[in-house]
């Protein structure tokens, strides 16, 4: 479903060239859940952002169901409609109610009527367990609730793939569970997911494959059972010793 070929992303910070993503190739099958882990600065977030074009690719290609992001004729907005993204800091639109946060893109991008988009929004809010907050502003919600709204907002566009960029890192510990529960439900329903996260428990329990990144390179790609018990790469071994 997702096909990544020799992806390279270079950052040029005052003459200092950093290869944030260095020649990464992989593919994700439909319904697969990938967890991307690695130390900070390893390029895992940049890799994720390349998957929906928030970062421009320097070379290589990314495609979803044959739609090639790097092809000059590809409409990047049409491409992004297929890919939902959840951010570390939720990035809800603070000037809109929760309901409007979910309806905006449906109405503007998918051209749905207000009634249709609202019905969809309410169903999704029900699903993530915050239907009663539909008319609140995001600032009135806890972090965990905000992140669940953000997940619902992305789902409202009916994406083929969901990307999660450290979705629980900005949360108070007691709220991590409610967000992970929503993600687990999604995974069980067969959603194709790529998650950058530090939640090793989630990786172990839900992931089909774990990708380990360091210095922009994809060093290890294995099933969670194998990755956590017998990591092959020495840097992965060192990383696991620190976090487990």
């Amino acid at each position: 479903m997702i096909e990544v070929r020799q992806l390279v992303k270079v950052f040029d910070a005052r003459g200092q060239v950093v290869r944030a993503v260095d020649d990464v190739s992989t593919q994700v099958a439909k319904g697969e859940v990938l967890v991307v882990i690695g130390p900070s600065g390893s390029g895992k977030s940049t890799f994720l952002r390349c998957l929906n074009g928030l970062e421009t690719l320097d070379s290589g290609s990314v495609s979803i169901d044959g739609l090639d992001l790097s092809h000059p004729k590809t409409d990047v907005n049409a491409y992004r409609r297929e890919v939902g993204m959840v951010f570390q800091h939720f990035n809800l639109f603070p000037h809109m109610s929760v309901l409007d946060n979910l309806c905006l893109a449906q109405q503007v991008v998918r051209k749905l009527s207000r009634a249709d988009s609202e019905a969809k929004a309410r169903a999704l809010l029900e699903k993530v367990g915050i239907a009663q907050k539909a008319h609140e502003f995001p600032s009135r919600l806890s972090g965990g609730q905000q992140q669940r709204v953000a997940i619902a907002r992305a789902l409202a566009m009916e994406p083929k793939v969901m990307l999660f960029d450290e979705p629980t890192s900005a949360l108070d510990p007691e709220m991590v569970g409610e967000v992970l529960d929503v993600m687990k439900t999604l995974a069980l329903e067969g959603m194709t997911m790529v998650c950058v996260t530090h939640e090793m428990g989630f990786a172990r329990e839900v992931a089909d494959r774990v990708l380990f990144f360091d210095h922009g390179k994809l060093l290890e790609d294995a099933a969670p059972a194998q990755f956590f018990s017998q990591p092959q790469d020495p840097r992965a071994q060192a990383f696991l010793r620190q976090v487990l």
């Binding site: 409609r81 890919v83 951010f87 905006l104 992305a154 566009m157």
Partner: peptide, 28 residues
């Protein structure tokens, strides 16, 4: 920046993200 990124990630184009997400907050 995350506001425009969130809007773009939902499929809004640059102008739509400006009009519906960034400018209303800026205006305030």
């Amino acid at each position: 920046k995350g506001q425009a990124e969130a809007a773009r990630s939902l499929g809004l184009n640059g102008l739509q993200a400006m009009r519906y997400v960034v400018l209303p907050q800026a205006f305030k």
